[in-house]
Design a protein around this nucleic acid. Sequence first.
DNA 1: ATGTAGACTGTGGTCGACG
DNA 2: ACGTCGACCACAGTCTACA
Lengths: 87, 87
Amino acid sequence: MDIEQAFGIVIKKYRLERSMSQEKLAFGSDLDRTFISLLERGKRKPTINTLFSISNVLEVKPYKIVKNSKRCRESFAEKIKFKLTAY
Amino acid sequence: MDIEQAFGIVIKKYRLERSMSQEKLAFGSDLDRTFISLLERGKRKPTINTLFSISNVLEVKPYKIVKNSKRCRESFAEKIKFKLTAY
DNA sequence: ATGTAGACTGTGGTCGACG
DNA sequence: ACGTCGACCACAGTCTACA
């Protein structure tokens, strides 16, 4: 799994925890709604500025999003490895 | 001070601490040397993928670079404020 | 409220060359 | 070893529209 996919999963998780719509997130972070959609599905790689403005709206510190993205990415790799060696 | 400037200062600090040249950093992170130069002077905004590959070469966790960038950015703002009110 | 698609603009990132 | 310049290309990010 690559970084942008992990990033998308993480921000989607935070967004849903705050029961916020993509539209609200887009408006608050001054980005386009369709772009948020692309980000959450790992179709685009955000710049660090995008990271900061999104994290601001979600009220999470940017470094936590990065940390969780890395963790998400690696735990996914482990799951694959596990599945492959399970039987 | 904006994010990309703080980012540039931080990665330059890490690079010099490891007494590594821009060229080595560029080679290791599979980026162009001139682009590293632009980044360190805050002329370009890196994507999170660029953040990850650079942090990998510098052997710093990506979230630490982000955390320090934010801190650098805010402490700079405080210094300006201090200077303005000092006399 | 979200995914997708297409057309578009700006800028992230490359590359060669010079001081 | 680094800053800079100019040309270039790929993609971040916008916008309209439809399901």
